[in-house]
Every structure is written in structure tokens, then in C-alpha cells.
């Protein structure tokens, strides 16, 4: 149970495997506080996407626990949208699921359109969008419901530079409002934007320090 008011998410000793005796996560610990942007990197296949899926409840950890009282928004690495629906219709499908009425969804949608600058695609079918615009919609959907925590899995693949800047503006704005973000990213420039930069090595989250070039396991 989370007692600390500033603590939004607590991960305790989470282990996970797809096949027995082949643990992908061997004991992940993390505490996410308000106003934090945590960057996670790691080799391909190290389990970053798996960890994020566990955090949002798409996978169940084999052992360990995840505690949160906050609303979570998630943008998956693969674009998960209805190809034959328009951008607006996709917003309505996911917004309606969360219990919002038409008007509330529209208000949120136009706000997100403005921020990410894709209002002109409102009535375009997803299958007719470019890869970068699809990614923007994929990310935009995760903002529905004004989540307290945003969990983003390589969210800006294929985005143009202006969208990339807009994306970071949204993150900083959210942080100002006391929200937090966990983001998987391999872009070196991003490191300066993170409050904490963590690496998933051998199934554990580790914090690497430049001074002694060593990594230390994150412990709560």
C-alpha cells in the first residue's frame, strides 16, 4: 500500500518469464515519484517492453508486486489502433471505454490535436496515415483521461522534428502539473531530459553513474 503522498507507483521485486527457467525480469524494483521523468534503456530483447506491459496490467508478474493509486496512460511500441476507423473514431472508441460522453471526448481530442498538431487528420482513416502520424495518434490516445502516469514505449518512432519537440513540451507540461512519465528511449539526447536514467541489465533496473562508470541495482 502506498502511504507517501508523492509516491505514484511502487514496483517490488518483480520477476517474469515467458518460458520457465528463462527469466526476463529477475527482480525489478522502482519507486516513481511525482514530477519525475524516468528514462529506461537496455539492449534489444532485454525486457523493457515486457516491464511496461506488466506496469499497465497487460501481463501479470510471476512474483513481486506493483502498487499504485494513479491513473495510467500507455502508448505501446506497436501501433494499436483500428485501421479502418478515422482518427476521431479511434479517440471515441477508447474514450467511450473509459466512460466519457461524446462532448468530453471531443474536448479532450481537440486539446490533444492542438498540442500535437494533427487536427487536419481528424477524419482520415488510420490505414491512410503515414507511420509518424500513426505514432502521434497512438501516443495521443494515451493522453485520454488526463492520466497521472504516462508509460511510453519508444513513442516517437517516425515522428518529424516539430512533433518530437511538441512531444517533449507535453511531457514537461505534465511534469509541472505533478504527473510522472516512464519512457523507453534509446536516444542519447533524451538523457538530459530525464530526472533519472535507468538501464535494464540482466533483468534488473540499474542506475549507471558517469563518475565511476559503474551501474548499481535500483533498490526501494
Amino acid at each position: 500500500m502506498i502511504d507517501d503522498k508523492n509516491l505514484l507507483l511502487e514496483i517490488k521485486d518483480v520477476k517474469f518469464h515467458y518460458k520457465k527457467n528463462n527469466d526476463i525480469l529477475t527482480g525489478v524494483n522502482l519507486e516513481l515519484y511525482q514530477n519525475e521523468i524516468i528514462g529506461i534503456s537496455g539492449e534489444n530483447g532485454s525486457g523493457k517492453s515486457t516491464l511496461l506491459k506488466i506496469l499497465v496490467g497487460l501481463l501479470k508478474p510471476k512474483t513481486g508486486s506493483i502498487s499504485t493509486k494513479s491513473k495510467i496512460g500507455y502508448s505501446p511500441q506497436n501501433i494499436l489502433l483500428f485501421d479502418n476507423l478515422t482518427v476521431a473514431e479511434n479517440f471515441h472508441v477508447f474514450g467511450r471505454g473509459m466512460g466519457y460522453d461524446k462532448k468530453a471526448i471531443k474536448d479532450q481530442m481537440y486539446d490533444i490535436f492542438d498540442k500535437l498538431n494533427f487536427a487536419k487528420y481528424e477524419k482520415v482513416l488510420i490505414k491512410n496515415l503515414s507511420g509518424g502520424t500513426k505514432q502521434k495518434v497512438n501516443f495521443g490516445i494515451s493522453l485520454i483521461g488526463d492520466p497521472d502516469i504516462l508509460i511510453l514505449d519508444e513513442p516517437y518512432q517516425g515522428m518529424d522534428y516539430a512533433s518530437f519537440i511538441a512531444f517533449w513540451d507535453i511531457q514537461f507540461e505534465m511534469r509541472k502539473l505533478g504527473k510522472s512519465i516512464i519512457i523507453v528511449s534509446h536516444i542519447i539526447e533524451d538523457q538530459s531530459k530525464f530526472s533519472r536514467s535507468l538501464h535494464l541489465i540482466k533483468g534488473k533496473l540499474q542506475c549507471c553513474k558517469e563518475e565511476d562508470c559503474k551501474c548499481y541495482e535500483v533498490k526501494n
Binding site: V56, G57, L58, Y74, L80, F82, D83, V93, G97, M98
Partner: peptide, 15 residues
């Protein structure tokens, strides 16, 4: 085939 991949996301959005 189309829904198999989308069901997890729909569930995440409270369906």
C-alpha cells in the same frame, strides 16, 4: 485477427 491484437488495449481502456 484484427481484434486479437487490439483487445488488450481495449481492456486497458476499461472495456
Amino acid at each position: 485477427m484484427n481484434l486479437n491484437k487490439l483487445v488488450p488495449r481495449l481492456k486497458q481502456y476499461s472495456y
